[in-house]
Amino acid sequence: MTTQTEAEAPLAVGQDTKAPNTTVGKEAPIRYTPAACVILERRSDLRKSLVYIVAYLMMEIGKQLSNFALSRANDGQYPVPSSLLVLLTECTKLLIILAWAMVMNISLLRWSPSLKFCLPAICYFMTNLLYLLALRSVPPPLWMILIQTRTLYTAAVYTVVFGRELTWVEVVGCLLVVASIPLARLSELQGGHLTLTSSVMLTSQVCAILSTVASVAVELLLKNDARSFCEQQAWLYLWGSLLGALAISLHPDLDSLSHLLQENRWSWSMATLLVLAVASSALAGLCVPFIVKNLDSIAKDYLAALNNMLLSAVTALLFPLHFTITWLYLLALALLILGIWLYERKVIWRHP
């Protein structure tokens, strides 16, 4: 790894990237002309963002396990509609942001409505619904491997749309991420499970694309919008809550749903899992903007991939009937982590 000199300093997105590459003995990066002058550069590093990273990793594990347990405890069905779970999560995040604004003595009257946060809110809403749908048949560690193609999609958006440099080593990293998916499929077959159907694979890629669009859109807004961080998050979660309320109003059988909520015949364990699922999902979601604002969307993705190592061990321990760790799965996980590490570290190979 070489020390970055002034000539090698990262270009701000929007800066002319067609200047000739004068770096001698290093791999020539792939460059494209950016579409617009925006800021997407990192404002911090991993050590300075360690608090947010640790909080995100802990909450993410809690989110994955509690949501999967919630579906497993009810024979593959959630005790309430998935749209209601998403609504409760978005409302929880919104209430936390509003409470934070009150504690920090931030005037809500100065906030102006914004439609900019509607697009990422729609993408996040659809992503969360697809995620909950997938967990009814796929354990969380496998799902996390399937959707890590979002690293590839995000890198493509950074390069083609915004003109960020991409070296061939980073391309290899992205290809390794993609290569981990068929290995994950083979690991399922080796373990005697048949959960990774073609519909699940398709759902995962739709989810990965939606996640990419939402992450890049939020990153653009966080780093370029003039609003305060608190106001940005409030509008994002308000739109998410409105979408959740709309989905509930369109429920095919509102009478049965109302009757289910009024009966309240859930066991103590089911109610605890429901609270844990909503709380951990909300807190994990609140940590993401801090990471994206200070680092970027790629950093969020590879942190989730690293976190998948611990998640795999815990899931295999708590749900041995639904998930087992095979050598093919470990190989898929290793390829995934190596691919994201190559992209993140931006390894430069010198010509002999």
Rank of each mutant, 00 (worst) to 15 (best):
I61V: 13
N67R: 07
L221C: 09
G285Q: 08
R265L: 10
G285E: 07
S204Q: 00
K223F: 12
Y158V: 04
A304K: 12
V218S: 12
M59H: 02
Y343T: 06
V275C: 10
S198F: 11
W239E: 08
Q262R: 12
S137I: 12
K293L: 12
N294W: 04
P352Y: 11
R110M: 09
T326I: 13
V138K: 06
E231N: 07
N21F: 15
P10W: 02
I147A: 02
N264P: 00
S281A: 15
L311E: 06
I325A: 01
A99P: 01
V177W: 01
L246S: 12
A208G: 09
A208W: 01
A279N: 06
F68Y: 15
A156N: 06
E170F: 02
L146Y: 04
S297A: 15
S258K: 10
S112N: 12
G62I: 05
I53L: 05
V54P: 00
L328W: 02
A247N: 09
L260T: 15
L132V: 03
K48W: 06
L98H: 01
V171H: 00
K93N: 05
K93S: 04
P113A: 14
S199P: 03
R345G: 08
S199M: 11
M58H: 03
L196E: 08
I298K: 08
H322M: 09
L132K: 04
E188K: 02
S82L: 11
D75W: 08
H251S: 05
A214H: 12
A208F: 03
V172L: 15
Q232R: 13
I30R: 04
P320R: 05
N67I: 07
W327D: 14
V157Q: 02
A284L: 10
Q262Y: 09
Q262D: 10
A36M: 05
C118P: 06
G191D: 08
H259T: 15
L87T: 14
W349I: 15
S49C: 13
Y56N: 01
R345S: 14
M144Q: 14
L84C: 04
L318V: 15
I209C: 13
M309D: 01
P29F: 03
S137Q: 14
W100A: 13
V86G: 00
S241G: 09
A73P: 01
H322V: 07
A226D: 12
L317M: 14
G62V: 07
A304Q: 12
C207H: 09
F319M: 04
